[in-house]
Amino acid sequence: MPIVKMGIRKMNIGIIALGSHEENHGAALPPDTDAQIAEYIAEKTAAQTDMEFLGVLKSAYEFPEINTGNHDSLDQVIADLKNQLRKAEKQGFEGILLVNAHGGNQELSDHLGDIARETDLVIKMDSTVCKIEGPHAGTGELSIGSVLGITDETKVTDHLNSEKYPEVGFVGFDKAREKYEWAEEHANEIIENGVKIDPQLGEKLLKISIENSVEKIRDLKSEIQL
């Protein structure tokens, strides 16, 4: 009797990057640093999992009292995300991984359940890089930027001028430091230790972030199969 091999259904999972596009990052990093980091992690994750990268969301949210540039309301970001997700659902996608590299966008995590129900998609979000890179525009981001080729190493000294670049570690954002304990911790880290470029650190942070996103893809596959 011939053996019949059962085919393995390939699940259609898309990956969307979340960053920010007009956010001050000191002297040595560009305004779209977070978007570029998220895109890199998302593309590497897509390549390692044979899933599809669907692009970078164009809007981003930021916490109150953190005035680092041009951002959108949380409602606007949710609306833009839903539009992109609906397009993905119409294209046949069953699950979506959101790869986030901008701190403020982590607020979306509280709304993913409602968004998933509205779009009929299984959705997960990975903000690993936000949690491990350290202070805003600090050593972690400078080092990741060095790996990506977006850090201007000639401007690192000027980067620590808190009068010109108060957003670095939020050192010059007094209200934010009063409001958020983590912002005060980040500011003190910059004041005490300064910043440096460490490509090995950058590679390590990216590796951890990609590994976590790959694991989230596995979780998505398991949930879709249930």
Rank of each mutant, 00 (worst) to 15 (best):
residue 1 M to A: 13
residue 3 I to P: 05
residue 5 K to E: 00
residue 7 G to S: 03
residue 9 R to V: 12
residue 13 I to L: 10
residue 14 G to A: 09
residue 16 I to D: 00
residue 16 I to Y: 01
residue 16 I to H: 00
residue 20 S to M: 02
residue 24 N to M: 07
residue 24 N to R: 09
residue 26 G to F: 06
residue 27 A to M: 07
residue 28 A to K: 07
residue 32 D to H: 15
residue 32 D to G: 11
residue 43 E to H: 06
residue 43 E to Y: 01
residue 45 T to D: 08
residue 45 T to Y: 04
residue 45 T to W: 01
residue 50 D to H: 07
residue 50 D to T: 04
residue 51 M to I: 01
residue 53 F to A: 11
residue 55 G to S: 01
residue 55 G to A: 03
residue 55 G to I: 01
residue 58 K to S: 07
residue 58 K to W: 03
residue 60 A to H: 00
residue 60 A to F: 00
residue 60 A to Q: 00
residue 61 Y to R: 07
residue 62 E to N: 08
residue 64 P to A: 08
residue 65 E to F: 15
residue 65 E to G: 04
residue 66 I to Y: 03
residue 66 I to T: 12
residue 67 N to K: 13
residue 70 N to L: 13
residue 71 H to S: 08
residue 73 S to N: 03
residue 74 L to S: 06
residue 75 D to F: 14
residue 77 V to S: 04
residue 77 V to C: 04
residue 78 I to Q: 07
residue 80 D to Y: 09
residue 81 L to W: 11
residue 82 K to V: 11
residue 84 Q to R: 15
residue 85 L to F: 13
residue 86 R to S: 11
residue 87 K to G: 08
residue 88 A to N: 09
residue 90 K to I: 00
residue 91 Q to T: 07
residue 93 F to W: 11
residue 94 E to P: 05
residue 100 N to D: 15
residue 101 A to K: 10
residue 101 A to V: 12
residue 102 H to Q: 11
residue 105 N to K: 02
residue 108 L to I: 02
residue 111 H to P: 03
residue 113 G to D: 12
residue 115 I to F: 00
residue 117 R to K: 02
residue 120 D to G: 03
residue 121 L to M: 12
residue 126 D to R: 02
residue 126 D to G: 00
residue 128 T to N: 15
residue 129 V to G: 02
residue 130 C to Q: 14
residue 134 G to C: 07
residue 136 H to T: 10
residue 138 G to A: 06
residue 138 G to K: 07
residue 141 E to R: 13
residue 142 L to W: 12
residue 149 G to C: 05
residue 151 T to D: 13
residue 153 E to F: 09
residue 155 K to I: 02
residue 156 V to K: 12
residue 159 H to V: 10
residue 161 N to S: 06
residue 164 K to R: 10
residue 166 P to D: 10
residue 167 E to R: 01
residue 169 G to I: 05
residue 169 G to C: 04
residue 170 F to I: 01
residue 172 G to V: 09
residue 176 A to C: 08
residue 176 A to P: 07
residue 189 E to L: 08
residue 189 E to H: 08
residue 190 I to W: 09
residue 194 G to R: 05
residue 196 K to N: 13
residue 199 P to H: 05
residue 200 Q to K: 15
residue 201 L to I: 10
residue 203 E to S: 11
residue 210 I to K: 10
residue 211 E to T: 03
residue 211 E to G: 13
residue 211 E to M: 04
residue 212 N to V: 02
residue 216 K to F: 11
residue 216 K to N: 14
residue 217 I to M: 07
residue 217 I to A: 07
residue 224 I to S: 09
